[in-house]
Design a protein around this nucleic acid. Sequence first.
RNA 1: UGCCCGAUGGUGUAAUGGUAGCACAACAGAUUCUGAAUCUGUUUGCCUAGGUUCGAGUCCUAGUCGGGCAACCA
Length: 631
Amino acid sequence: MESPTLPSRSTPPTEPAALHPPPSTLHHSTSAPTPPDASPSALHPLPPRHRGGYEECSDSPTSDLRPPTFDSSTATDFIREIVKADLQSGKHAAIVTRFPPEPNGYLHIGHAKSICLNFGIAQEFGGRCHLRMDDTNPAKEEQEYVESILNDVRWIGFDWGPHLYYASDYYGQLYDYAVELIRRGKAYVCSLTPDEFKAYRGAPPAPGRESPSRNRPVAENLDLFSRMQAGEFDEGRYVLRARIDMASPNLHLRDPVIYRVKKEAHHRTGNQWRVYPMYDFAHCLSDSIEGITHSICTLEFEVHRPLYDWILEALDVYRPRQIEFARLNVTYTVLSKRKLLELVQGGLVRGWDDPRLPTIAGLRRRGLTPASIRAFARRVGVTKFDGYSDLALLEFCIREELNKTAPRRMAVLDPVKLIVENYPAGQVEWFDAVNNPEDPAAGTRRVPFGRELFIESEDFQEHPSKKFFRLAPGQEVRLRYAYLVRGTDFIRDPASGRVTEIHCTYDPDTRGGNTPDGRKVKSTLHWVSAAHAKPCEVRLYDRLFKSEHPEDVPEGVDYKTNLNPDSLITVQARIEPALAAAARETRVQFERKGYFFADPLDSREGAPVFNRIVTLKDTWSKLAKTSAGHA
RNA sequence: UGCCCGAUGGUGUAAUGGUAGCACAACAGAUUCUGAAUCUGUUUGCCUAGGUUCGAGUCCUAGUCGGGCAACCA
């Protein structure tokens, strides 16, 4: 649908509302509340932080770094190209974008992509990005969601400054615009029932039929619309429709509903309104009112664009440009609001901030950093191709950052006792351990060593395969920072078949893990001193779904059958003393195991609970799986 | 079915009519007091068929496949 040649504003207003009053012909604007004045933010101070349990609204120390090694100057995409061109051609003097969530659910990694796109563009091109709650459906929206959204956007690392808006702030203006549309003969009050409405609209390729109400006189339309708002009619009795083209091949142009009666209290406007604008009417006008230059949304709104343009042209107001891009999909997870809600309400996960969920709250609680999420958003790119991004890329982004920033510690997740036979009972030595080999400034710490230790039970095999370099009878390994030890004997519980105790001898000449004679060992193990180690709850999180595309299920099969039963395994680990002192929200690397985050809610002073953020890359486990020799 | 959109290695992306490149993943080697990190190397790609052109991933046409729309949701 190409633009008619109506005179329309070619430049956006520089400030919302102030420069953009409704057409001056509108004076009979009911008792509608007025839209925000020039400083809307004053009306809407930031609400208290979301879910008082913990706070992490600003980047934590480790996440305050720039997205690592990713050169954003070379990264571009078709939207940035458009923006750049519009700036160069002088079409716009400044760029204004917006992130417009509906406060009816929690934000997830897919929203993060959109947030990074919109705020990122504003940042890169020296413009601004508005945060606007698209709250036009009182039946679904709640203040709780508004607060979580504000918190999440802030946490990801963006600042909307004074530009926090609500579509509900524009209800007065929107109502006046609707009245104007009626006056111009471009909207009418329709009395069709929902069923009739559907039947009249028709199914392509057949054209629709015109509603009997289509030629209702303007005065009658005006009267009915004001009575809709006055609460005289039940929901569904009347709707306001744009008068466009019942024969259009685009269903959205077959006289779409733009206002409906809803006798529901709105989370911000209470009971002031009995009519509420539909998305298509509210969104384009909100964009116009705010002077948005580039209205970036996802692909499913592509077919709405002609309507977006039609409404703004019909009203002769400033017209932003809508640009659509592909929403994010990530392997091994689901991102639809419906499914996420189902997982939470069905008790399949432990709430919206369950660390297995792709919600921002979940990722935050899992221990991912804002910087890693931003890096991921840049790397997945922006196109119109609707594909799946690899979870492995997100994992790479967080490892890349934490490798450089996270202190190393030793923790044994599946402990088995190791007795050093020739080490004196009761003796304790403290060894210096490097905190972060990637960062000399991180310094060292002391770790205690003694005759009785714990090591990972998977680090011992009675009959090692050729490729198994770890501890075995007669095989020598290094205990990191301590000594070289050689396996001698072990005890196996006949009932369970499990090895319960391993014996070894140490070489006193290898103190600190050094080999004065230059001999090599093929493996270095992490360990903790049995006398000093603290027990600690560790939550080993894994992907929520077993299958790469959980939603791809045959007819009649529930996607939930793809849930990974091992997505959470809780273990009692043994941790070195320096770890037991870790504060909440500390990110560390457990050597040879992965990156972990001291849970913000469940950790206590001196007794942290750790969430596994991501494992280390593990060449061995792949090898072990494919190698027949693995015991 | 009608309309709209899309299609480049396993995955995500680049190329703007002129040598198909990058990242992740995978694999191999070097190195290593983390089987990590690091370094080096390797494998794998323009949906199909026509057309325009000296030259097509790029432009045109048709087809194939995939996605979206058909709420008084956003």
